[in-house]
Design a protein around this nucleic acid. Structure first.
Length: 237
DNA sequence: CGTTCGATGCACT
DNA sequence: GTGCATCGAACGT
C-alpha cells in the first residue's frame, strides 16, 4: 500500500499559541477552489448571546458561477441568490428541505456569483451550547433525537452544523469580517486533504468540488481511505 | 453493512 | 405545483 505522508503542517505560517487572526476580505476575494482548500483547518467562530461556539473546518463544497448547474446562481440573479453576486466575505444562508439552514461563504469578486458551503466542523468551543441547540425541541427537525449526540458529530453535515452553531436565515448577508460571525486562523494542522464530487445534488454532480480532511470522523458522506491519499495538500481539481 | 422514505417550508416557474 | 446543496429512523441483507 502507498506510504502515507505525515500530516501537513499548515505550510509554515503560524504556530499554535500565536494570536488567532481573523480572515480578512482579501482571503475570500480569490478563486473559489483556492479559498475552499484554504478554509480547511481554519476555525469558524460564532459569538452569540447563548455563548461562543467554534469548530475546525474539515469539509466544504464550492459552487461557482451561473455555468455551474448546482449553484444557486444558475438561473441568473433572483431575490434569493442576491448575496452570491455581492461582496466576498459575506454570509449566504438559505433554507432547504423545509428544515435546514445552509451556511455558505461568498467568494470571488462582486458581480461573479460563487460561494462555499461549509459542510462539517470538528467542534472546539461551546460544545454544551451546540448540544442544546441540536436537541432543542421545536423548530424544524426531521425526527426526535433518540440517542445522545457524540461530541465529534455535533457539526457533521451542513444542516447539523448550522443548527449547532446557531446560524439561521437571520444571518444571511452578514459580514464575516465583523465581530459576531467570522473565520480565523489558529495555526491548526490542516491534515490530509482530498477532493471528491459534491454530495446530495442532482445536477453538476460530476464536478469534484468537495474538499475534506481525510480521516476526520466529523466529515459527512464518503471519504477516501487515508492510505490512498498521497499528498497532504492536494492540488486543486 | 446497505437502501428507502417521510418530514417540512420556501423560492421559483 | 414542483423540487430541493438534508437528516435519521426503519427496515433489508
Amino acid at each position: 500500500m502507498a506510504a502515507v505522508r505525515s500530516s501537513g503542517s499548515a505550510r509554515g505560517r503560524r504556530g499554535p499559541g500565536e494570536t488567532p487572526q481573523t480572515l480578512a476580505r482579501a482571503f475570500y476575494a480569490r478563486p473559489t477552489l483556492t479559498v475552499a482548500r484554504d478554509l480547511i483547518g481554519k476555525v469558524l467562530v460564532h459569538r452569540s448571546p447563548a455563548g461562543v461556539t467554534s469548530g475546525r473546518i474539515v469539509e466544504v463544497e464550492a459552487y461557482i458561477g451561473e455555468d455551474d448547474p448546482a449553484c444557486h446562481a444558475a438561473p441568473g440573479p433572483t431575490r434569493r441568490n442576491e448575496p452570491l453576486y455581492g461582496e466576498p466575505g459575506h454570509v449566504y444562508v438559505y433554507f432547504n428541505y423545509g428544515m435546514h439552514d445552509m451556511f455558505n461563504v461568498v467568494t470571488e469578486r462582486r458581480g461573479k456569483p460563487a460561494a462555499i458551503l461549509v459542510r462539517a466542523l470538528e467542534p472546539l468551543d461551546g460544545l454544551e451550547v451546540m448540544e442544546q441547540r441540536r436537541l432543542a425541541a421545536g423548530g424544524r427537525q426531521p425526527a426526535a433525537p433518540r440517542r445522545a449526540i457524540p461530541p465529534g458529530h455535533l457539526c457533521r453535515g451542513p444542516g447539523n452544523l448550522a443548527r449547532a452553531m446557531g446560524i439561521t436565515l437571520a444571518d444571511n448577508r452578514l459580514d464575516l469580517c465583523g465581530p459576531e460571525l467570522f473565520i480565523e486562523d489558529r495555526g491548526l494542522d490542516v491534515g490530509q486533504v482530498a477532493w471528491s464530487p459534491r454530495i446530495g445534488i442532482r445536477v453538476g454532480a460530476d464536478r469534484p468540488w468537495r474538499c475534506y480532511v481525510v480521516g476526520s470522523r466529523a466529515v459527512s458522506g464518503p471519504t477516501a481511505s487515508p492510505a490512498s491519499v498521497r499528498s497532504s495538500s492536494a492540488a486543486l481539481p
